[in-house]
């Protein structure tokens, strides 16, 4: 474990908690894509299949449970909470994410580290996390609503990606044979898509602020 990865995990967790608290506090999820949040929950559920079989460290096991619980809590809030679910942009959040899930699964069947049940699902979760932001990006382009996507959320999400890339560079130079190419390449694609999301986020933010000022 290095400080970059620890900080990356913390900023990732904080971004999820910021979103959960924002939805719970305002009892609104306007502008938030349920499909992206479902994909994130699926990412954690398929990546942490080794929760009960491989013990890496207490930190690792605790964080897996926290990520699964917090991502499911957001999905539950948006689907079941009587007040929150009313504000969901159902007719705008129409990205057909099932095709993305299928494409990632096929890719995982072809490209993985070992052809075992857990490894195929691990690769699937890595690919899926890279593209999970797409429904949110599409919804943001359509709705331009950044009310619930706070600046802090975007900031911590960006910090998570940046710190993980530094972590990979650090591990590449300090550990012999650090070769998690699937995670690194997919992570770079994910970061590029996040950069696109951040671009549209700030455009929407500026547009919203301008309208507010007029």
């Amino acid at each position: 474990m290095n400080i970059f990865r620890f900080a990356g995990d913390m900023t990732h967790l904080i971004s999820i908690l910021i979103l959960l608290l924002k939805i719970y506090a305002t009892k609104s999820c306007a502008g938030i894509s349920l499909k992206t949040q479902e994909l994130y929950a699926l990412v954690f559920l398929t990546r942490y299949l080794d929760l009960f079989t491989d013990y890496v460290s207490l930190y690792n096991s605790v964080m897996k449970i926290v990520f699964i619980a917090s991502s499911l809590a957001i999905v539950w809030c948006m689907r079941r909470h009587p007040l929150v679910r009313r504000s969901y942009d159902k007719d705008l959040d129409t990205f057909r994410h099932q095709y993305v899930v299928l494409a990632c699964f096929v890719l995982a069947l072809v490209l993985h580290e070992r052809f075992t049940f857990q490894e195929v699902f691990w690769a699937f979760s890595i690919y899926l996390e890279a593209v999970a932001i797409l429904p949110q990006l599409v919804l943001l382009q359509r709705s331009g609503n950044v009310d619930n996507l706070t600046g802090q959320y975007v900031l911590f999400l960006g910090a998570y990606r940046g710190l993980y890339i530094i972590n990979w560079i650090y591990r590449y130079f300090t550990e012999d044979h650090f070769a998690r190419w699937i995670a690194c390449v997919s992570g770079l694609i994910q970061t590029a898509l996040y950069a696109d999301f951040f671009y549209y986020y700030y455009l929407s933010r500026i547009k919203q602020d301008t309208i507010m000022r007029l």
Binding site: M1, R5, D9, H12, R47, D50, D54, V56, S57, N60, M63, K64, F67, E113, R114, W122, N167, H177, A179, R180, A183
Partner: peptide
């Protein structure tokens, strides 16, 4: 071989 190690990254 090396890849037998469990994934240590979250």
């Amino acid at each position: 071989p090396l890849q037998q190690r469990p994934h240590d990254e979250l």
